[in-house]
Design a protein around this nucleic acid. Structure first.
Length: 631
DNA sequence: CCCGTAACTTAGAACTGGTATG
DNA sequence: CATACCAGTTCTAAGTTACGGG
């Protein structure tokens, strides 16, 4: 239904190397990979080969079994019930504020000023961000200053009336020195910190849910600081206040050991709700939304849900043709509402747009999704660059990431869009008779469990599968096959518009590479000159020695040409990935079983595709998918 | 239907730490 | 040995969806 265009570097073999840079977990001989792919076989072999002392034998399997609990082989809970037993230690609070040493000064209007602890703390938040572009933004400064003043004593308030007169540079220097000092710490000191973190993780990083120890994702409470919204956020710079035990709701089993609040404090509430998955929650002060502490993606509760998500997408695969025919019919409907719904759904399906909920104006950055598109976000071109009926999209989506695309559409869609835009202002809704709730209700009627986001999952996964089929060359070696995998992944990332800001060091590293290329070019020119003169020489002398010299010079030229090509391909590859992020699609949209099956089919070690964390998250897929798995 | 709220997934940026490089 | 670099990890913002009450 949709086409993803990719430009590939010309030479495969050389860019392979680039792909492998930094993948440090390669094991010589690569046998170990197959241990993981063929777990059961490997285990059998192991127990035959190795003679383990009796005591060890008894202990180890038990431990391993606990670590490798295969929840996916167990029966699921009835709908709505998330757990039967839940015990945890509660959250870890942000460390208390440590006042600055006396010699670190803050200046107002050129004069030293000693701040109260509360005001000082908030000032340090700003000082720590001084190098960031944020602090130059008008809205950020205004919001910060307003909230900062709330923390000041009456005296401070009356003195400090202008942010521009505040000098945080000394404070900023102090923090930079601190960071530097941390880097310079001795091995022992660093180890001490590491040990302490490990202890914290061990104590607070896990919970017990239904007889199994599970890893918690975010057991640390977000520390206070200045709110950093994405894009043009009206609340940027506001003070994110410190969360206290009195803000915290604990959720756990009635019969579990209830985590005690820190001495001298109380929890806001302790509840025992097994219809939800969270362990701890609190209300954040910027948007007034609720934040949660939940389990790690490797947990049963997250894994099951993830698996279910892909199963829903696979059900969509079975009826997607029917749904597509349906919405194409609906383009002709006499009901405006139905037409809008059908065109919106077409965009969601074809372009993998997000649903697009309405947002409260002034509360968040101005971003849109499909249903919230405005007239100003599209341009209609009856003809553009030799193509008919082109729609030009230009809007900011989630995280204020720009979506820009020129898409040829069916005539009917085009005509409908013209109709929807008639007599509207640029800031009016394109789909004025539609919202996500209407759309999702309709989708629910088409297929149980179908919502707008299922299309994104479905199209991402099916694209990966298709692209893998298309791009994998059976004769390629492993690195070349992995390159194909990454390209398939890239096709999905482009479809889903997963972008990233070019890394800060990108230009520099690109320049380094370019200078390497330039040097190589010069080297090549030299080698060619030498070859030329050797040829001339050989013509005159006509002896064996000069002939040989010509041959070796020829080879040298070839070798340098190849090296140059490699470098250029590497540059292309890096350039192509400059603004594309592969990880989001890999983590959230691609059915891991497709990747696992592909690995098994071609004998690719799973470690080449998934790092340790990803293997933990996708353990279910790695265990259950065979090479013939079809999404 | 509208609206607000709750719960959960998805997202890019910032940070970290281990390793390659000079 | 210091430094640069980058993959992996952490952080938390920003979405989607369901639901209940008027």
């Amino acid at each position: 239904m949709f086409v993803v265009k990719l430009i590939y570097p010309k030479r495969q073999s050389s860019s392979v190397k680039a792909c492998f840079q930094g993948e440090g977990n390669t094991v010589p001989g690569s046998n170990r990979f197959f241990l993981i792919l063929q777990d059961s076989k490997a285990k059998k072999a192991k127990s035959k080969d190795k003679k383990v002392p009796e005591a060890d034998k008894r202990k180890k399997p038990k431990k391993e079994e606990e670590q490798k609990w295969k929840w996916w082989e167990e029966e699921r809970y009835p709908e709505g019930i998330k757990w039967k037993f839940l015990e945890h230690k509660g959250p870890v609070f942000a460390p208390p504020y440590e006042p600055l040493p006396e010699n670190v000064k803050f200046y107002y209007d050129g004069k030293v000023m000693k701040l109260s602890t509360k005001a000082e703390e908030v000032a340090t938040f700003f000082a720590k961000m001084l190098d960031h572009e944020y602090t130059t933004k008008e809205i950020f400064r205004k919001n910060f200053f307003k909230d900062w003043r709330k923390e000041m004593t009456p005296e401070e308030k009356s003195t400090i009336t202008n942010l521009s007169k505040c000098d945080f540079t000394h404070m900023s220097q102090y923090f930079k020195a601190q960071t530097e000092a941390r880097k310079q710490m001795s091995k022992e000191e660093k180890q001490k910190i590491k040990d302490e973190n490990e202890r914290l993780l061990k104590e607070y990083g896990y919970c017990v849910m239904d007889n199994h120890k599970e890893r918690i994702a975010n057991f640390k409470i977000e520390p206070p600081g200045l709110f950093r919204g994405r894009g043009n956020h009206p609340k940027m710079g506001m003070l994110k206040r410190r969360i206290m035990p009195e803000d915290i709701i604990i959720n756990c089993s009635k019969d579990s050991k209830i985590p005690p609040p820190p001495p001298g404090h109380k929890w806001k509430e302790v509840r025992h709700d097994n219809k939800v998955t969270w362990l701890v929650s609190w209300t954040e002060n910027i948007q007034g939304s609720i934040k949660y502490i939940m389990l790690n993606p490797s947990s049963r509760i997250k894994g099951e849900k993830d698996w279910q998500k892909y199963e829903t997408a696979r059900r969509l695969k079975k009826c997607v043709d029917k749904i597509r025919n349906q919405y194409r019919e609906d383009w002709k409907s006499k009901e405006m509402k139905v037409r809008q719904r059908a065109v919106a759904l077409y965009f969601i399906d074809k372009l993998a747009l997000r649903a697009g909920n309405e947002k409260e104006e002034g509360e968040t950055a101005d971003t849109v999704g499909c249903c919230s598109l405005r007239v100003e976000h599209i341009k209609l071109h009856p003809e553009l660059d030799g193509q008919e009926y082109v729609v030009e999209f230009d809007f900011l989506g989630k995280d204020s990431i720009r979506y820009y695309n020129k898409v040829p559409v069916e005539k009917r869609v085009f005509k409908n869009l013209q109709l929807f835009m008639e007599n509207k202002q640029p800031e009016d809704d394109l789909f004025d008779r539609l919202n996500t709730s209407i759309l999702n209700k309709h989708l629910q009627d088409l297929m149980e469990g179908l919502t707008a986001k299922v299309f994104r999952t479905y199209n991402a996964s099916i694209t990966l599968q298709q692209q893998l089929k298309e791009l994998t060359n059976p004769d390629d070696n492993i690195p070349a096959k992995i390159l194909s995998y990454n390209r398939a992944n890239r096709a999905v990332a482009i479809l889903c518009n997963h972008q990233r800001a070019p890394p800060k060091t990108f230009e520099k590293s690109m320049m380094n590479l370019q200078s390497k290329i330039d040097a190589k070019k010069e080297q090549l020119a030299d080698a060619r000159r030498e070859l030329k003169s050797a040829k001339a020489d050989a013509k005159v002398r006509r002896d064996e020695k000069s002939k040989k010299s010509v041959e070796s010079k020829k080879k040298a030229v070839q070798r340098i040409e190849e090296q140059l090509m490699k470098l250029e391909v590497q540059a292309t590859d890096r350039e192509e990935n400059k603004q594309i992020a592969l990880s989001t699609s890999k983590l959230n949209y691609l059915d891991p079983r497709i990747s696992v099956a592909w690995c098994k089919k071609w004998g690719i070690p799973i470690e080449k595709i998934y790092n340790k964390t990803q293997r933990e998250k996708f353990a279910w897929a790695i265990d259950m998918a065979e090479e013939d798995f079809e999404f």
